[in-house]
Structures are given as structure tokens and as C-alpha cells.
Design a protein around this nucleic acid. Structure first.
Length: 989
RNA sequence: GCCCCCGUAGCCCAAUGGCAGAGGCAGGCGACUUAAAAUCGCUCAAGUGCGAGUUCGAGUCUCGUCGGGGGUACCA
């Protein structure tokens, strides 16, 4: 310990300063944001502030594992941004709550017998303390957790609103487009009055329907409904999962257990009703293009046509009655080339197309199925194939080669344009879950169909040929059979004509338009749009989630609980665990924990619907984790409001549509409103962000919010990665104990004497490379950690963590400190003299640059500019007060504790969370001379000091007179490019 | 396979189409110290993965290619 510098800024001093200022902030409510209305209405305070700004973080799950240094990255970024804007007098709302329902707490409860509420609340306390130590400026009044009864009361209320609504495609919205959620009561009235009918009524009058039938009709339209549908059943977790929670290889995203398709009655959300709006409105928000693409892909809208292929069933009750196989195609222009059809193994029509008895005469052996040889019958072959397909788990389908398999059904359909009989196959490369589960196969125009046709010896007719330079069919094209591959690109239609219609010679777009019109005219088909997006599976067989505010009557009809019965609280249960099974046991049945509390499940209630006291059975599933995180940003706006999820005036103020659309929005776009800045990782790109947008749009349609989108601006942060060291068995070893030898490309690493390899990976306990924020506070302080994380590189990129590099950030703060405080005496050492012109120039250039950087989230370059200015001051004998004050203010967003402390020591009272923030003056950026570079043909050949105010003509003359220029231009000059005062480029002949 | 992002000093990263370096780490030298750590000062270091093209001029724009990362995949 040195006695000579007792006032040096060290980690220990940083700790004292940081803790003290965190107390001050808490005591003064420094980050409280006033509301215009609602229980906390402070309209005068709102009016006294400038414009509003709502900054949002990803909703954290309070894990018991503790934070590592990767977790707070986004929180630091939003805090810097919030502080910067707050210092400029804006009303900044930045708050943090907790997404506290969920599996880990429940699994921990199962292991320890502790109530999940207890462990969850304990974890929240721990996490709050860790985050507070970082100096994050949250409005502490606005924190809550999704497990709070007065929070999930509203989650249940929103669910009820969604369930009591349907999507009316004929409603004209304010912007003139069609379709919106409306109360289901409107549908009931219209059906009762007969002004509307729906196919589910099968032509009967509403009054003729029984209660059960009415409920079934309405369920076909409600935005939240129960359905017996194939779902993702995960025996290992004992619950069902949404499509989004299942990985590509057919396993659970959480736990990596096998997932099976099962028919089970489950709650669904009709998100597909919003598919178009969810896709279209991406144009109106400011999000990374990458994330927009991921959402568009997930929604998977594709436009094409549905086409009916005549076919005559050969068995079953409808045998002999002509019907059609409906297919969806994005290439109706290739319909003349459809030489066979394929149904998915699950397609309902398959059964009726398989003839009894033997194969039709002449059926090729390869069409009769893999193992049947020439002996089996069509029924045996098809049944065997379908059984094999159904037994394949999704995992097996993925692992298998994409080798085409299939079986001929024994029946031919008719190509509606050519009149040709085309064979119908069953093959598992056609999926029941997409389109109609049946395709027309055009081998010449589709790679998969081509492969299948080649394997099964089916005809291939070229219907599109590549276009030559003249826009006609390219000369010398030998066709797809000769090429050995389908032609899937844009081209010119050929071989595509019958007596009524010809596409020949047309490019793809025109061919599509003409044939679609023709199909429509003939009643064979119509233009259609299909989506990859499926309705959202919304129930889980878990304990630790929001109970559904739903009861079933003795007929099994679901009823929403009235508002007065909310919240429906979660009862205690004898056992928190759902019944889990052998992960491979596909035949197991879900059994939710709540079903084991009969006194809670069986109730007698008056639902205030005029039916009086009735016996009911409660829904025993719970909502998925996404429910609470679908609307949490709205509750920050008015967390104490017990009359509404958010007061409409508060909603309008904080997230209402703004007067200007976001940058790059199409001309004429109306602003959708939403959060001003949302920072988070890309892992939520399709799940959380899509679900929340859907709920928000329902709330908008129903008039509860004025904004059409929840997240107006979204920024996707990169990941902090860390080196992973592995021993010769490939096991990670503790990164902190690894020694490095040599440097650069020659570097090697050892752990306890044995050589280890190094790679870059995620941070985590299992990889033994986690560094906790607490270690960093101890060694450097929170401000240094904040500066280091923000200066590592662009926020959107992933960057490797290197603890030893953080010392650079500490040194910066030490130099900043030393420029204000004498390290040996503790006295303030700034002088009252004004800075000279050179420093004034650096100062104002810095202010202008730093402001731009903060606004654009370029914190790494902002910090570099602050360091540069500080280094310039360090070189002086005495730091000018005016410069240091402005530097301290500019540093405050990234390193708020030290900035507060220095600001106080510089003699200012009252803290600086509300500023001021320096304003730069471009006119004070004055330089005596600037260096003009002189290029000959673009290469730098000379330079000259000139006045920054030099005119173009003067500079040109000056440069042309230079010796090197004269020498280089002996043969004359072609052109001279002058960019006064910095550059002249002379191009000789 | 397809789509997106990134390749600049040993490392992390800057650079409105205009002198490749803002900032940091590491390294080297020096100061301070009995010594070390810490701190301070100075310093070394790449022609921008590779190949074409556009341009008076390319790290930056275009095309191709290689490498790394991410997304997605029989989606008709």
C-alpha cells in the first residue's frame, strides 16, 4: 500500500464511491419517471420535462445460478442510453421486472420440496442486489414480477379478452385495411339474427343448435380456443410444447428431450389470424433486418394458387363419386408439366384411393413399395408405408438421408389442363402440415419432384425454359432431362397450351397471372396465400404458471371467469411435479399437477351470466412462460393501476404512435408507436417478439391500446463470448487456472502442467469459463466494468471477453480522476483558466462526436473520444475547469458513480442524473492550418499545410505550382479534383 | 443446399469513397521503487483473407472465391 497516493482512484475507492451514490440515487428516487395519469399522476412534473423516452430490456428470468459478465451487457447499454437522454431533460422511463414463472424454479421445487414462490423470490432478491451494484438507473417503484397476484390478474384478464374475441375479416380498420379482433358477442348476435352464417353451422339456424354445438361453433372462431389437435408431447418434461419450443431435430429446446406428435385437447391461440399483419407491419418498425427476415421466414407467407385435380375414389363410402384432390402450388404456371401427384402419408383421402385386390396391370415394380416386391397388394403396400412413416419420429426423419421414398396408391387423377391421367403417390416428402398436404408434381420445375420422377421412372415434361438475351427461349437448351436437373428459375413457358389457354412464350409472372385467372374462371382453382405459421399452443401441464381463468360446466363447455373472480390464484399442491415419463415413452399421457387438488378443481360458482350457481370443473393446465412476458412492457407504464392494465393516457404518452414514422419505413407509413428502444439478444427473434406483437395487436383491435406495435425500435445485441480450454479428453478445464505461454500464433496453454486447447464459446458454468460481476467489482469496480463492456466493440457484435484487458478502462478512470483530484492531497486541482484554442477544438469536436455516438448506441467510439480528450488534458500542467466539467458530464452515462463524485467535488450540488449534458459548438472547432494531401492519380505524393478557409481556386493554383506536381505533369493535365481544404488529386494525361 | 452477418497490427476494435489508426490490451524501452506490483512517459507494430471490376481515388461500392459465426431447411 502506498501512502503517497491515498486519494488514488482504485477498486477499493471505486467501491466506496459506488455504494454511496447508489444509496443517494435510491434515497432521492433519482430515476423515477413521472406519469401523466393513473394512480401516480404527476402531470406538472411531466410538463416540466422534455419529450418522453421509454427504454426496455429483455425481461429477466431470476435464475438461482447467479449472473455472469455476459448477462448485464444489454442492461448497461440501455442504462447508458437512458442516462444520456435523461441528462438532456427527457422524461425517461427505464424499469426492470422479473419473468418469474417457469420451469427451473419448479424443477428446483420438485428436488427440494420448497415452494417455487419461495425460491423464485429469493432469487429475485439476489439478482436485484447484483444488478443494483452495477449502478443501473431503474425506476424502482415500477418493478414487479409476473408471479405477483396483481400482475397475473391482468395476464388472466388479457387471456379472457382474447378468448372472448374473434377475428372479423370484414371490419374496416382506421387505415382502411380489413380485419380486426371483435368481441365474440358481436358474432353471436350476428349469428342469432341470421345476418351472418359460418360453415361450422352446416346451414342450420343458431337457435336450432344445442349449447354444446354453439360452443363448438364459437370455438372455431375465438382467438383462444381448445382444440383436439396434433401437439408436441414431451414425456421427458411431462408437458406439451409449442412449435417454437421444438428444435429442428425434433427435441425440446429446454432439456433436449424427444418430442412426439400426439392428439391432445389443448388451448390454442389463433395467431394465424394475424399472419398478414404480423408480416406486413414489420415494415413499420425499426428492427435489424436480420430479425425481420427471421420473423418473415417463420410466418412463411407464400402466394400461389390452389388447384383441384379430379379423381375418383375407388373404395369407401364415396367410391365412384368424382371428387378432387386440392393442392397448393407457388408455380401454377407449370401446371401443364404436372405428371403425377403426391399425397402425404397422413392425407385423409389416401384411404379411399387404394384399390382392393391386385395392382393395376403394368404397374412398375418400383411403385409397389420398398419391401413388397411384386407380391403385395396396393393396400398392403400403402398401409405398410403409412405405418412406417407414422412410426418415424421427427428425429429419424431428420437424420435420414433425403432419399425419396413413396408408394403408388393404385389410382390416377386427372391433370385438369391436359386431361392426362396422372398417377397418385403417397410419399413422406410431402408434409400434411403445410398447404393442403398434397402436391402436384412438376418434375421439370421442382428439384424434389425431379428426383422422385427419376427414381420412379415418371415422365418429365419441360414447361419452362431459360430465357436468352432476346427474352425468347434460349437457343440450344437441351432440356432438364439432358441437364439432369430441374429448371426452377424464371424463364419462358413452353409446352403449355390446350385448346382454351396458352402460356407459351410468357415469362413466369405473366404466365402465373394468366393461368390463375383461367383456373378461377373455370372453377378449377384460385389464387391463394398459405402460411407456415401455425396456431400457438398455449397450455402446459405444469404447476408454476398462471392458472387459466376458465371453468368447464357439466356439458364440458368452457366458460371464462368474470372479472370479479380475478385473479384466480394458484393453489398449493401436494406435489409440484407434473408426471414425467421415460423420455422415449410416446404413449404416455399428460397429467398436470393442478388436477391433483380436487377441492380446487371442483367448484360451485355463479359466473354472473344469469345461470346462477352451477357446478364447474376448473382448467388444470397452466399458461406457458410466454404469457407473462407478452405484455410486461405495458405494466411498467402504470404498475399500480388496479382499474386497468394501463391507464389509456399513460399508454398514449409512453407508447402511442409518434408523428413521424421510423427511418426507412415505406412512404406514407403511419407510425405504429411502441417502445422507443428495446435491446436484447437475437434468441427471442421469433418466439417472444412474435407472441408479444400478436397480443399487442389484439389489444389494439379491442381498443385497449393506441399503439399497433409493442416495440417500435429493437436492437439486437451481440454475445460476450469467452475462451474455452479443453484437455486431451475434450473436457473443459477452469479457464481462470489456465496459463498462457508465448504469444500470437505461437501461443500455447497449459492447465496444471498439461497442454490444453483453446476455442471461443459461450460463457457458462458447464464450460468453466464464467466470470462473475462480483469478481469484477472487487478487482476494478462497477464503473470500470461498465466502461469495459461498452468499449469492447460495437454492441451488435459478439466479442471475446478478456478480463486482463479491463485494466485499460480502469486506467482511463484513474486519469480522469487525477485530472480533477490530486492523488496525494485529495484537493481539486482544476484551474479556472480557459483552455487554449487547440484544446477547445478537441473539446467541441468530442462533444459533437460523443453525442452522435451515444444516440446511435456506438458506445465504443464514444468512450474512445472521451479517452482522447482526457489524454489531451493529461498532457497539460493544469486541467482547465471548464473542460474537465464537460468531460465529467459526458462520462456520466457510462461511468455514473465516478462522474457524480467528481461533479460533487467540482462544487456542484444536487447530482447530475438530470444533467446538464454538454452542447457542442461547431464554430469553436477552429484549426490554424490543416494538412492538404496532394495525390497524383490517386496516390499520395505530397502534402502541404494550408488555411482551413482556403478557396478551391487558390488551393488548386497552390498545388499545381508544387515541384512534385509540376514534375509529374510534364505532359499535361487531364483533370484536377479539389476537395478543399483537405485534398487535391491531380490526374496527368 | 439456401439466406444473413463478419474477415484491418500478436489480440479486441476505429476510419461521410479521399494521408490505413480514434481508443484499449499485449510486447519493448524508460521513470518511480531496496525490490515487485500498481502507476506514469515513450515506443514497436498491419497496406485491410484472396482474385477481378467500377472510380481520378476502394478497407469502404460490385462480382467471384476462401475462412469464421448465425438463421433455416423435403414449406410444394
Amino acid at each position: 500500500m502506498s501512502d503517497e497516493t491515498p486519494f488514488r482512484y482504485t477498486a477499493a475507492m471505486a467501491q466506496d464511491i459506488e455504494l454511496a451514490w447508489q444509496d443517494v440515487w435510491e434515497d432521492t428516487g433519482a430515476f423515477n419517471a413521472p406519469n401523466p395519469a393513473g394512480p401516480w399522476a404527476q402531470p406538472d412534473e411531466v410538463a416540466a420535462l422534455g419529450s418522453k423516452m421509454l427504454v426496455l430490456d429483455m425481461f429477466p428470468y431470476p435464475s438461482g445460478a447467479g449472473l455472469h459478465i455476459g448477462h448485464p451487457l444489454g442492461y448497461i447499454a440501455t442504462d447508458v442510453f437512458s442516462r444520456y437522454h435523461r441528462m438532456q431533460g427527457k422524461n425517461v422511463l427505464h424499469a426492470l421486472g422479473y419473468d418469474a414463472f417457469g420451469l427451473p424454479a419448479e424443477q428446483y421445487a420438485v428436488q427440494t420440496g420448497q415452494h417455487p414462490r419461495k425460491t423464485t423470490e429469493d432469487n429475485i432478491v439476489i439478482m436485484k442486489r447484483q444488478l443494483r451494484r452495477l449502478g443501473l438507473g431503474f425506476d424502482e417503484r415500477r418493478t414487479y414480477a409476473t408471479i405477483d397476484e396483481d400482475y397475473y390478474r391482468w395476464t388472466q384478464w388479457i387471456f379472457t379478452q382474447i378468448r372472448e374475441s374473434w377475428y372479423d375479416p370484414s371490419v374496416v380498420r382506421a387505415d382502411g385495411s380489413l380485419g380486426a379482433a371483435r368481441p365474440i358477442s358481436e358474432l353471436v348476435s350476428a349469428l342469432a339474427e341470421g345476418t351472418r352464417s359460418v360453415p361450422e353451422m352446416a346451414g342450420r339456424a343458431w337457435s336450432e343448435l344445442s349449447a354444446v354445438e354453439k360452443a363448438r361453433v364459437l370455438d372455431a372462431h375465438r382467438l383462444a380456443y381448445t382444440s383436439e389437435a396434433p401437439v408436441n408431447w414431451c414425456p421427458g418434461l411431462g408437458t406439451v410444447l409449442s412449435n417454437e419450443e421444438v428444435t429442428n431435430d425434433g427435441r425440446s429446446e429446454r432439456g433436449n428431450y424427444p418430442v412426439f406428435r400426439r392428439n391432445l385437447r389443448q388451448w390454442m391461440m389463433r395467431i394465424t389470424a394475424y399472419a398478414d399483419r404480423l408480416a406486413d407491419d414489420l415494415d413499420r418498425v425499426e428492427w435489424p433486418e436480420k430479425v425481420k427476415i427471421m420473423q418473415r421466414n417463420w410466418i412463411g407467407r407464400s402466394t400461389g394458387a390452389s388447384v383441384h385435380f379430379p379423381v375418383v375414389p375407388v373404395t369407401g363410402p364415396r367410391a365412384g363419386e368424382p371428387t378432387t384432390i386440392e393442392v397448393f402450388t407457388t408455380r401454377p404456371d407449370t401446371l401443364f408439366g404436372a405428371t403425377f401427384m403426391v399425397l402425404s402419408p397422413e392425407h385423409p383421402l389416401v384411404e379411399s384411393l387404394v384399390p382392393e385386390g391386385d395392382w393395376p396391370v403394368g404397374t412398375h415394380d418400383s411403385w409397389k413399395g420398398a419391401d413388397s416386391g411384386a407380391t403385395g397388394t396396393p393396400r398392403e403396400a400403402v398401409t405398410a408405408y403409412r405405418r412406417a412413416a407414422s412410426r418415424k419420429s421427427d428425429v429419424e426423419r431428420q437424420i435420414e438421408e433425403k432419399d425419396k421414398t413413396g408408394v403408388f396408391t393404385g389410382t390416377w387423377a386427372t391433370n385438369p389442363l391436359t386431361g392426362e391421367a396422372i398417377p397418385v403417390f403417397v410419399a413422406d416428402y410431402v408434409l400434411m402440415g403445410y398447404g393442403t398436404g398434397a402436391i402436384m408434381a412438376v418434375p421439370a420445375g421442382d428439384e424434389r419432384d425431379f428426383e422422385y420422377a427419376v427414381k420412379f421412372g415418371l415422365p418429365i415434361i419441360d414447361v419452362v425454359a431459360p430465357a436468352g438475351p432476346d427474352g425468347q427461349v434460349a437457343e440450344g437448351w437441351e432440356g432438364t432431362v439432358a441437364a439432369g436437373a430441374a429448371f426452377t428459375g424464371d424463364g419462358i413457358a413452353i409446352n403449355s397450351a390446350n385448346a382454351d389457354v396458352s402460356l407459351n412464350g410468357l415469362p413466369m409472372a405473366e404466365a402465373k397471372a394468366r393461368i390463375t385467372a383461367y383456373l378461377q374462371e373455370q372453377g378449377i382453382g384460385a389464387g391463394t396465400v398459405t402460411y407456415r405459421l401455425r396456431d400457438w399452443l398455449f397450455s402446459r401441464q405444469r404447476y408454476w404458471g398462471e392458472p387459466f381463468p376458465i371453468v368447464f360446466d357439466s356439458d364440458g363447455i368452457a366458460h371464462s371467469l368474470p372479472d370479479s373472480m380475478l385473479p384466480l390464484t394458484l393453489p398449493d399442491v401436494p406435489d409440484y411435479s407434473p408426471k414425467t415419463y421415460d423420455p422415449e415413452d410416446a404413449a404416455s399421457e399428460p397429467e398436470p399437477p393442478l388436477s391433483r387438488v380436487p377441492e380446487w378443481v371442483e367448484v360451485e360458482l355463479d359466473l354472473e351470466d344469469g345461470r346462477g350457481l352451477q357446478r364447474y370443473r376448473r382448467e388444470t393446465n397452466t399458461m406457458p412462460n410466454w404469457a407473462g412476458s407478452c405484455w410486461y412492457y405495458l405494466r411498467y407504464l402504470d404498475p399500480a393501476n388496479s382499474d386497468a392494465l394501463v391507464d389509456p393516457a399513460n399508454e398514449r404518452y409512453w407508447v402511442g404512435p409518434q408523428s413521424n414514422p421510423v427511418p426507412d419505413a415505406p412512404a406514407g407509413t403511419r407510425d405504429p408507436g411502441g417502445v422507443d428502444l428495446y435491446i436484447g439478444g437475437v434468441e427471442h427473434a421469433v418466439l417472444h417478439l412474435l407472441y408479444a406483437r400478436f397480443w399487442h395487436k389484439v389489444l389494439f383491435d379491442l381498443g385497449y391500446v393506441s399503439s399497433e406495435e409493442p416495440f417500435r425500435t429493437y436492437f439486437s445485441q451481440g454475445m460476450i463470448q469467452a475462451h474455452v480450454f479443453r484437455d486431451d479428453r475434450g473436457q473443459p478445464v477452469p479457464a481462470a487456472e489456465v496459463e498462457e505461454h508465448g504469444e500470437g500464433a505461437e501461443a500455447t496453454w497449459t492447465w496444471r502442467g498439461q497442454p490444453v486447447t483453446r476455442e471461443l464459446g459461450k460463457i457458462g458454468k458447464s464450460l468453466k469459463n464464467a466470470v462473475s460481476p462480483d469478481e469484477m467489482y472487487e478487482a476494478y469496480g462497477a464503473d470500470t466494468l461498465r466502461i469495459y463492456e461498452m468499449s469492447m466493440g460495437p454492441l451488435e457484435l459478439s466479442k471475446p471477453w478478456e478480463t486482463r484487458a479491463a485494466v485499460g478502462s480502469l486506467r482511463f478512470l484513474q486519469r480522469l480522476w487525477r485530472n480533477v483530484v490530486d492523488e496525494s492531497t485529495g484537493s481539486v486541482r482544476v484551474v479556472e483558466e480557459e483552455p487554449d484554442q487547440a484544446l477547445t477544438t478537441v473539446l467541441h469536436r468530442t462533444i459533437l462526436g460523443v453525442r452522435e455516438d451515444y444516440e446511435a448506441l456506438r458506445f465504443n467510439t464514444a468512450i474512445a473520444k472521451l479517452i482522447e480528450l482526457n489524454n489531451a488534458v493529461t498532457k497539460l500542467a493544469a486541467p482547465p475547469r471548464s473542460v474537465m466539467e464537460q468531460l465529467v458530464l459526458m462520462t456520466a452515462p457510462v461511468a455514473p458513480h465516478i462522474a457524480e463524485e467528481l461533479w460533487r467535488r467540482l462544487g456542484h450540488e444536487g447530482g447530475l442524473s438530470r444533467g446538464p449534458f454538454p452542447v457542442g459548438d461547431a464554430s469553436l472547432i477552429v484549426e490554424d492550418t490543416v494538412t492538404c494531401i496532394i495525390q497524383i492519380k490517386g496516390k499520395v505524393r505530397d502534402r502541404v499545410e494550408v488555411s482551413p478557409a482556403i478557396g478551391e481556386a487558390e488551393l488548386r493554383d497552390l498545388v499545381l505550382a508544387r515541384e512534385k506536381v509540376v514534375a509529374a505533369t510534364a505532359d499535361g493535365i487531364r483533370t484536377v479534383i479539389v476537395r478543399a481544404p483537405r485534398l487535391v488529386n491531380v490526374v496527368p494525361v
